[in-house]
Design a protein around this nucleic acid. Structure first.
Lengths: 231, 231
DNA sequence: GGTGGCGATTGACGCAGATCAAGACGGTCT
DNA sequence: AGACCGTCTTGATCTGCGTCAATCGCCACC
């Protein structure tokens, strides 16, 4: 494990509990961790660009990373935001070592890089590695499918409601929490202009959601769930 | 291999050349084919429903299958259309054996079903199986990300143009072919109402595309590619 | 305390595409 | 031939959201 950085305990925990490492046997984990490099990034740093050769895939130890596609005329479409404990870029291993999107740091981050070629070599010896990666891919795929379905079936306020409900502890009748990142980023991941997110929030106030800066309070999660499914 | 059906040569070819079986070693292929069941379906048959227990995942030998999500009030959003040689439903293996969407036959089909539990048992013994499935997952994920980006960055005519270009042999300056399925299905996969697809087609006529029923002729693929990227 | 800057909000406007409602164009069956 | 049915097209209208522009709130910094 090459790193010039000292990891704090939260970063260590994010690393070991991420969906890539946590299901592995000790031997497999040791093997992949020998291919690992840790690096710090500043906001707006590019982690990788679409179409470039994929040397590594990443696990986020702290900070935020935004995955997106860029248009010819510079417009961007967000594919997802990843935070501590998330893995991204792994699909390049099975796409001719070519990244399918851009990745940019949205908030000062520390990333663990795993060498794609070296991990690929380990697949035959440690079958649980391929299984772990399949699990990550399957979850990313499901998330992408959710996104497509939500884009096409739900209005802006409904999508925002779904997002908020996903952050509520399941089963609780009401809930209070902080948005994990700033609203303009959230707007992007939901496929909205910041103005549209703002308007969606004001509409949700009528459904028992209070918004104070980044702090959210949901009066009745069940009623909001109802709203998020249909008009 | 359990089947009451006799496969024709095209179906055999679709089976053996699919992304699941084709990269496998002989031993691995034999093992997974012992978990296989082949079944015929009529148009509109349901292959599986979102949220139900995933016993099997499928390879299409002939016909068409539509993958989609349903709203509370019955509206549907297509996640993809699959045809001969395509594999679908495989991600359920890594999602607690739970299908993430509905699948319905769009055109009389013959499907090969692989037993998820039995294939899962084979993963440790045959590492190439997990690799093959990872490859499928990665391609499905990339396709879903393409879809999200296209939905958000492109207009209807541009998305239609992209779809058409994807069916042109690469490098050829012009091209003629038949749409692989009826226009209302195509509209669904592009996230459009059939009327919008129709209007998109009439706009593409101005860009050197002729549409005669299901037959498409593209005058200048490079010009169309230009158009599909930006206004 | 003032000033500058950034993110969030609000309003006004325009447009892409959904929806609704007819019609047109095939196919098949009698 | 004619009648029928499903698919596609065309037109008119509606609506959600993008865009542009102005303002507000907040925090940092001088």
């Amino acid at each position: 494990m090459k790193t010039t950085l000292d990891l704090d305990s939260a970063q260590h925990q994010a690393l070991l509990q991420c969906a890539f490492l946590s299901p592995l046997s000790d031997a497999a984990r040791d093997a992949v961790m020998r291919t690992m490099t840790v690096r710090g990034y500043q906001t707006q740093d590019i982690v990788f660009r679409e179409g470039t050769t994929a040397d590594t895939f990443c696990c986020i130890l702290s900070g935020l990373v935004r995955l997106y596609r860029v248009n010819i005329d510079g417009r961007e479409a967000d594919l997802g935001i990843f935070s501590a404990g998330d893995v991204f870029g792994e699909c390049s291993m099975f796409l001719q070592n070519c990244y399918p999107a851009d990745a940019k740091v949205a908030e000062k981050a520390v990333l663990a890089h795993f060498d794609t070629a070296m991990v690929f070599e380990l697949l035959p010896k440690f079958p649980d590695i391929a299984q772990a990666i399949s699990g990550i891919l399957a979850h990313h795929l499901k998330a992408a499918q959710n996104c497509i379905a939500d884009d096409r079936l739900k209005t802006a306020p409904q999508r925002v409601a779904s997002f908020l409900l996903a952050r509520c502890p399941p089963g609780s009748p009401s809930s209070t929490f902080r948005l994990p990142y700033q609203k303009s980023l959230l707007a992007g991941t939901l496929g909205l202009a910041p103005e549209a997110l703002s308007r969606a929030f004001s509409q949700l106030r009528l459904n028992g959601v209070s918004i104070m800066g980044r702090n959210i309070a949901i009066e009745d999660t069940e009623a909001l769930r109802q709203f998020s499914r249909s008009e």
